[in-house]
Every structure is written in structure tokens, then in C-alpha cells.
Simulated assay, not measured.
Amino acid sequence: MTTGTRPWKIPESVLVVIHTPALDVLLIRRADAAEFWQSVTGSKDTVDELLALTAAREVAEETGIQCGQRSALASQLVDWQLRNIYEIYPRWRARYEPGVTHNTEHLFGLCVPERLTPTLDPREHTDWQWLSYREAADACFSPSNAEAILLLPEFAQ
């Protein structure tokens, strides 16, 4: 049930597109793959964890932006009611229970009032940038992340 000292990752995750009203998107660069720019992503901590809690927790962990219950941005975290099922990249499969090859990713948006300066955990991410949504989609390594960003004009209204 563990990968040594850590429990297996749960193959159900969130992707949170953080954006401004002007549709500028925050991207963060992975520490374990410097060529990979992405939105906030992360797996559930427990099978029973609510997806909105996963999304708010991951945003706080990866950017320092607080959007959980009772925060000023709580109402701006929106479940887009969309999901992607994709094959887990082989380089990261060892984090999951043997035989797990696919992940279900739930899409969220978080509208922030302006281009905020994130606080990154250097073990997870090494840099950040704000880009127009089209530029952000082009910069993402993940096709599902790029597709989510391109949906932003539809969901930001």
C-alpha cells in the first residue's frame, strides 16, 4: 500500500486553471521536469476527499493562494464539471499502485482579481509566469492542460 515511505497516489486528481478577469493564466514550472509548465494539479489525499477540497488544498500548497472555505476567494473556485481520463506518464507511474496506468482529472477554474505573486514550494515548482490564455495553452506540456486553458473564455463568463 505504499511506495516505500509514502502511500500510493490516488489516480484521481484536479487541475485548477488560475486566471484573472482579463483571462491571463498563471503557469508554474515543475521542479522534477524543468521543461514542463502547467496549471496547479494534484491528487486527492484520501479516496473520500471532496474534489473542491482537493482543489483548494493544491492551490494553497503550490501557490500560497488561499481559496478554501471561508477565504476571500472561496466563491471564485469553480468546478467546471468536466473531467479527463488520461494515461499516466511512465516516468511517474511508480508513484501509483502497480497496474495503475490511467488517472481521472477534474477541471476547476479560480478567478483571482489580478496577477498575484505566488509563493512556490521549491521542491515542487521552480518558477512561475502569467501569460494570456492562448500563450499559456501553447506553453503547457500537457495536452489536457492546454485544452482546459482554451476553454477559459467559455467558463470565465
Results as ranks from 00 to 15, higher is better:
1 M>D: 07
4 G>H: 03
4 G>C: 02
4 G>F: 00
4 G>L: 03
7 P>I: 09
9 K>Y: 03
10 I>W: 02
11 P>W: 00
11 P>Q: 06
13 S>V: 10
13 S>L: 04
15 L>E: 02
16 V>S: 02
16 V>T: 01
16 V>K: 02
17 V>M: 05
17 V>P: 02
18 I>F: 01
18 I>K: 01
19 H>P: 10
20 T>C: 01
21 P>K: 11
22 A>T: 05
22 A>D: 12
22 A>F: 07
23 L>T: 14
23 L>P: 07
24 D>G: 07
26 L>N: 01
27 L>A: 01
28 I>M: 05
29 R>H: 09
32 D>H: 12
33 A>G: 07
33 A>V: 10
35 E>Y: 15
35 E>K: 12
35 E>F: 07
37 W>K: 04
38 Q>M: 09
44 K>L: 05
46 T>C: 09
46 T>D: 12
46 T>V: 05
48 D>S: 11
49 E>D: 12
49 E>A: 10
50 L>S: 08
51 L>S: 06
54 T>L: 04
57 R>G: 03
59 V>M: 05
59 V>G: 00
59 V>P: 01
60 A>D: 13
60 A>H: 12
62 E>S: 08
65 I>M: 00
66 Q>N: 13
66 Q>M: 15
66 Q>C: 14
67 C>M: 06
68 G>F: 06
69 Q>G: 00
69 Q>H: 07
69 Q>W: 04
70 R>V: 15
71 S>M: 13
72 A>F: 04
72 A>K: 04
73 L>W: 05
74 A>E: 11
74 A>M: 03
77 L>M: 04
77 L>E: 06
77 L>F: 06
78 V>R: 11
79 D>S: 14
80 W>A: 10
80 W>K: 11
81 Q>L: 11
81 Q>P: 06
82 L>A: 15
82 L>K: 12
82 L>T: 08
83 R>N: 12
84 N>Q: 08
84 N>W: 10
85 I>M: 10
86 Y>N: 09
91 R>L: 11
92 W>L: 11
93 R>Q: 15
96 Y>H: 13
96 Y>D: 15
97 E>K: 11
97 E>F: 00
97 E>D: 10
99 G>R: 07
102 H>R: 12
103 N>T: 15
107 L>E: 07
111 C>Y: 07
114 E>S: 09
119 T>V: 07
122 P>L: 00
123 R>E: 00
123 R>A: 05
125 H>C: 02
125 H>N: 01
126 T>A: 00
128 W>Q: 01
129 Q>P: 09
131 L>P: 04
132 S>E: 03
133 Y>K: 04
134 R>Y: 03
136 A>P: 01
138 D>F: 08
138 D>T: 11
140 C>L: 13
140 C>T: 14
141 F>L: 09
141 F>K: 05
144 S>C: 06
145 N>L: 03
145 N>F: 09
146 A>F: 11
147 E>N: 08
148 A>S: 15
151 L>G: 14
151 L>V: 02
152 L>K: 02
154 E>W: 13
155 F>I: 06
155 F>H: 09
156 A>I: 13
156 A>W: 11
157 Q>C: 08
157 Q>M: 10
